Simulated scan of single mutants.
Amino acid sequence: MATKQRGRPRSFDRDEALEKALHAFWQHGYEATSVADLTRSLGIGAPSLYAAFGDKEALFDAAVEVYARTDNGTFIDRALAEEPTAVAAFTRILREAAVGYTDPDRPRGCMVLSVGMSATTPEVVAKLRELRALNMTNMAARVQADVAAGVLPAGTDAEKLASYTGAVLQGMSTQARDGADRELLERVAEIAAAGFAAAAEGREVGASGA
């Protein structure tokens, strides 16, 4: 008589689980997403979740790393690296934000901005603040590089321009969460890009670039 074999445990796809956790945090925020919510989203029990990822904060950290590899997580760095000028890079950043923040296949807005606005856990707040600060530093450095190269006027305030773009992105993310569609955010992006270019080049907003 053959010995009955024990059933093999269901395979666990870590990447798929992290993607689901990312969407849960992105949609609902850090505090509002409970371990019970995560186990339902991932389709695993709490012991399996803890064994695979540690605690909830560790799972969030891993989900943020996944986000950092998505289009929404890399579009700023790609634009800064690929465009020939800071003005072109910032125009592209704003335009791509309008598309990415309204992508129907993902939660709306920027995950770092959306979760950061509602988070109260100190470690999570600090992590997301650090990511936002890194973006500001990289954007300011791109402007400063154009100043050093003579592309933008001496005395151009790189930090102010980076902060301006960050504020516009935060507003666009919030509007996307509130239901703004791609067309509306693209109009916002064009107006903001024109304002950035004028300020960077020392022109009055609305003045001709000729």
Rank of each mutant, 00 (worst) to 15 (best):
R108I: 07
V125T: 14
K127G: 03
T137L: 13
Q144D: 15
R129Y: 11
L18I: 15
A63H: 00
A210D: 14
V143I: 15
Q5S: 13
Q144E: 15
R14I: 05
R182E: 15
E130M: 08
M172G: 05
A162V: 13
F53S: 01
Q144P: 04
A167L: 05
A126S: 12
A194V: 03
A176V: 08
G155T: 09
M172L: 06
A63W: 00
E183R: 14
S48K: 00
A24R: 10
R132N: 09
S173A: 15
G195Q: 09
R78D: 09
F90K: 02
V188C: 01
R203S: 06
G100N: 14
R129E: 12
V151E: 15
T39C: 15
V35G: 09
A162N: 05
G166T: 11
R203V: 06
Y67S: 02
L59Y: 03
A199V: 04
V66L: 11
T121H: 09
A51H: 00
Y50G: 01
V115D: 04
K4D: 09
G109M: 06
T91Q: 10
Q175V: 02
T174P: 00
A162T: 10
E183D: 14
T165P: 00
A86I: 08
G209R: 13
M1W: 04
A126Y: 07
A2S: 12
A133Y: 07
S41W: 07
A88M: 05
G73K: 01
T102A: 06
G155I: 10
F25M: 04
T91P: 00
R182W: 04
D103R: 13
A149D: 15
R129L: 12
L18H: 02
E183T: 14
Y50N: 00
H23P: 00
V124M: 08
A2H: 14
V35A: 09
E201G: 13
S34P: 09
L131V: 09
P47Y: 02
A193K: 05
P122A: 06
M139Q: 11
A36Y: 08
L94F: 02
R187L: 12
H23G: 01
L94N: 03
D15L: 10
